[in-house]
Simulated assay, not measured.
Amino acid sequence: MKLNFTKSIFILSIVIGLGSSSNLFAQDFTDILKAPEAEAEAYLNEYIKPAMFSFANGMAGGWYNTAKAHKPLGFDLTFTLNVANIPNDERMFNFGNVRYGNNQSFNNLRLLSGNTNTDLPTLVGGDTDETLVLAGDYQAPDGNTYTYTAEQFPAPEGFDPESLPIAGAPVPMIQLGVGIIKNTDVKIRYGKYEAAVDPSSTFGAELKYGLDLFGIGVMHDFKQWIPGIKHLPLDMAIFVGYSRFKTKIDFDVDEGVGGGFVASGTSEMTASNTTIQALVSKKLSILTLYGGIGYNAVSSGFKVKGELTNYNLRDSGGNPYTVTDPVDLTYDGGSTFRGTVGLRIKLAIITLHTDYTFQKYNTLTVGLGLSVR
């Protein structure tokens, strides 16, 4: 069977609940994992890194739509969709510039054109006509030399950024905020989901996946403690929030000995962020204008754990090459400036809001909620 491995795992991780069709994932990415593990990991690092940062930054959106805290036991229940835009210069990567290990470049994974100075798409880099080739001898970590039966396959493509209003990973979020004491809100994000994909679907393999999301935030009105500003006709608050996300997907792929690839195991995607911002808002009838300034720290990771056997890579005795846990990628985005401007409309207890956050991965947020003071 064929499995759209990388793209299906990553997109399943980030759009569960959006009802996306598996027909979006027709391109087969299994072949990249047939490369030597260091080369496969280096390629996938360049391919998914921008989307991973987009997702981690998108998780920081949607925490607030006003700086005014609820009265005790007042609450809001809000659904938001956040998309962090991937900068233009990160939507493609240069094949010949990729380095891994001791400053090594690709060896067994090659371009059919022979032109290494070629830009290839990331997950949101659009289409490509380039073809990749696996060929030559591979000196494996077990000390044996394995030889590829030369094979060709299309280079992985990405979503067309021109077809997206913002080129990034969509992050849906459901959140509950509750007022406690001293003009303070506690905000909770939580989600847990498990399901299976029918192997007869276009994923072409048996998949079982689960999602685990948790986040907690606190918004506190600091204006009340400062005599010089507490009577200003504005709401002001400080916000601190933390979110973490983990997806675990079990997979089982069998192209058969003649097909060249057998794999079973688990993939994991993780992301976390910490957000600190000073907030201000002004209510004008049904309209509230709000904004914030502060910083955001993000990190994320992607792993493929399990055993993969490649029957097109054999030693002198004809034995196929088997690799365990081939991919382990970690991304540390550090701390970056974050500035937000937005507006909210409230009709009775129904709220509609949108905001835009300026940071390295600029983020658009739209939301719908219920708010009871």
Results as ranks from 00 to 15, higher is better:
216 I>E: 09
209 Y>N: 12
171 V>H: 03
139 Q>T: 13
113 S>V: 07
121 P>A: 01
212 D>T: 11
122 T>A: 06
209 Y>P: 08
173 M>K: 10
112 L>M: 10
162 E>V: 08
215 G>P: 10
240 V>S: 08
195 A>H: 13
245 F>K: 14
119 D>L: 14
200 S>T: 10
249 I>C: 11
227 P>Y: 09
212 D>L: 10
161 P>T: 03
185 D>C: 07
174 I>C: 06
234 L>A: 05
233 P>L: 05
245 F>D: 15
136 G>F: 03
108 N>V: 01
124 V>I: 11
249 I>K: 08
220 H>N: 15
180 I>R: 00
107 N>D: 09
112 L>D: 11
122 T>P: 11
225 W>T: 15
123 L>Y: 03
153 F>R: 07
142 D>V: 06
150 A>S: 15
198 D>Q: 02
219 M>F: 05
110 R>L: 14
191 G>N: 04
143 G>F: 15
139 Q>W: 12
235 D>W: 13
243 S>W: 12
129 D>F: 01
180 I>V: 07
114 G>A: 01
192 K>G: 03
171 V>D: 07
241 G>A: 14
147 T>V: 11
139 Q>R: 15
193 Y>E: 12
157 E>L: 08
121 P>I: 01
227 P>V: 03
219 M>I: 11
243 S>Q: 14
121 P>R: 00
204 G>P: 02
134 L>V: 12
215 G>F: 11
244 R>H: 07
200 S>D: 13
180 I>K: 00
141 P>N: 11
165 P>G: 14
205 A>V: 00
181 I>A: 06
226 I>T: 15
